[in-house]
Write a protein that binds this DNA or RNA. Structure first.
Length: 161
DNA sequence: GCCAACGTTGGC
DNA sequence: GCCAACGTTGGC
């Protein structure tokens, strides 16, 4: 296990389709932990590999839900390491162009922290003046792993409570 | 189901 | 290096 680098925790938003893996699935997982696999976008990959570290906070966003919403909070418990699914020919995330020597894709481990009693919908996020610059509220913001500022983090938690 | 936004691919 | 075609995401 790599040593934890010390710095102020950062905040992120991770998207997941609840039909594929919901926050309830995370809460029911062994040790309430899973590896965040299947990210196949270079910008998100760079964040997973370089910037997302243990102790960071994650807003767990349910995309494709009706309505889409932030469902709760998770915590990063292991920083970037090669996503094992890229090497698995049976996986839908298999990437024959990647190799163990030079892995192309990375994942992190996240642990369940909290499921909001009151999920915060995308419409609510868009309506909040404090969140006008939040990435997920921007048109066409498809990045599945997004940075969140401390102010945005606090505002979303406040809305959920 | 539609379609806007965005990323990737590949011809040139 | 440009850019059209194509595939995917994801809100609506």
């Amino acid at each position: 296990m790599a040593p934890t680098r010390s710095r102020r925790p950062r905040r992120w938003l991770f998207k997941s389709e609840p039909d594929v893996f919901s926050i309830d699935d995370l809460a029911a997982a062994p040790d309430r932990t899973t590896f965040w696999d299947g990210v196949r976008n270079y910008q998100a990959r760079n964040l997973l590999r370089d910037d997302i570290q243990p102790g960071d906070g994650v807003l767990y966003y349910h995309s494709g839900a009706n309505p889409p919403h932030v469902a709760g909070v998770a915590e990063v418990v292991r920083g970037g390491y090669p996503d094992p699914t890229q090497f698995d020919p049976a996986s839908p995330y298999h990437d024959p162009g990647s190799s163990a020597d030079e892995p192309r894709w990375y994942c992190v481990d996240v642990r369940f922290v909290e499921r909001f009693a009151r999920p915060v919908t995308l419409a609510e996020l868009k309506a909040a003046p404090a969140l006008s610059a939040m990435m997920v509220t921007q048109r066409g913001a498809r990045l599945s792993v997004q940075p969140v500022t401390e102010k945005e983090w606090a505002a979303v938690l406040k809305m959920a409570r």
